[in-house]
Computed example of a mutant assay.
Amino acid sequence: MRLDKYLCEAGYGTRSEVKKLLRSCIVTVNGERVTKSETKIKDGDVVCVAGKEACFSRVEYWMLHKPAGYISATEDKKLDTVLELLPENARSDLFPVGRLDRDTEGLLLLTNDGKLAHYLLSPKRHVDKTYYARIQGRVKSEHVQAFLEGLDIGDEKKTLPAELRILKSGPESEIEVTIREGRFHQVKRMFEVIGCEVTYLKRLSMGSLKLDETLEIGACRPLTEEELRKLKEETGCWTE
């Protein structure tokens, strides 16, 4: 990897900012001062800036408490994307694992680990995803069984069994629902089938990963070692 790219990925700014840094003669590689951007960095090389080692992770995992109004995409010419909520020192090649609707809040994992993302999103693996929702309409005990049996939402197949928990039943109901697939607008379409409308939706968990409720809406943080270990254990996915 080129030295300027290495320093950019380590959070020292843009390419132009890194070039200025190199011209200031405070960057060393294995103890030797280096000023050329094109200098090649190999595994095992020690890069320091002003005497402090410059390190970066080739693979990163971020938990985001997604707010409404942002789309789960890496770029868009008109709309705000979730990547805009990441800190400046985050890697530039991160992407959201799966999609939350623009108006949906809650847990979103962002990473550049394509292997883990594939394992979490693969339709064959049926990773549990739990949501909290406010529903316009009365959700009844009979709907719990209907969700468990699977619903016809207009696709070729019924939905897989889903676990519906009624927190409050009334003109406006509150529920938690766990689904094991990720069809387009699935939760909203499931409630439409029973004559109800989702007015608020928030994802609480994905597999073993649970939303850190101390994270303010719009805030993010790296996954803890324990969170990452559990994710990789349940998927059997270990990145070298």
Rank of each mutant, 00 (worst) to 15 (best):
residue 47 V to M: 03
residue 82 V to M: 03
residue 101 D to N: 03
residue 46 V to G: 00
residue 90 A to G: 03
residue 99 R to Q: 07
residue 134 R to C: 12
residue 55 C to R: 15
residue 180 R to C: 08
residue 150 G to Y: 04
residue 6 Y to S: 06
residue 66 K to Q: 05
residue 215 L to K: 04
residue 6 Y to A: 07
residue 128 D to A: 15
residue 133 A to R: 06
residue 29 V to Q: 05
residue 135 I to F: 07
residue 82 V to E: 07
residue 185 H to S: 07
residue 89 N to R: 15
residue 54 A to S: 13
residue 77 K to I: 00
residue 134 R to I: 13
residue 123 P to T: 07
residue 117 A to M: 14
residue 26 I to N: 05
residue 26 I to V: 14
residue 59 V to M: 01
residue 214 T to G: 00
residue 40 K to A: 13
residue 108 L to F: 09
residue 55 C to P: 00
residue 132 Y to S: 13
residue 233 E to R: 12
residue 28 T to F: 03
residue 179 I to W: 03
residue 177 V to F: 08
residue 85 L to D: 03
residue 100 L to H: 09
residue 87 P to V: 00
residue 160 L to T: 11
residue 63 M to I: 06
residue 157 K to F: 08
residue 104 T to K: 07
residue 127 V to F: 04
residue 110 L to I: 13
residue 155 D to F: 08
residue 101 D to E: 12
residue 64 L to M: 09
residue 209 L to H: 06
residue 89 N to C: 04
residue 59 V to A: 01
residue 186 Q to I: 04
residue 158 K to D: 10
residue 101 D to F: 08
residue 45 D to F: 09
residue 159 T to P: 07
residue 185 H to A: 04
residue 167 L to M: 12
residue 187 V to N: 13
residue 93 D to R: 13
residue 17 E to Y: 02
residue 225 E to C: 00
residue 162 A to D: 11
residue 66 K to S: 06
residue 21 L to C: 02
residue 37 S to E: 15
residue 180 R to S: 12
residue 222 P to I: 05
residue 178 T to R: 06
residue 110 L to D: 06
residue 81 T to Q: 11
residue 218 G to I: 03
residue 73 A to C: 06
residue 48 C to N: 14
residue 68 A to E: 15
residue 47 V to A: 04
residue 162 A to K: 11
residue 187 V to M: 01
residue 211 L to D: 04
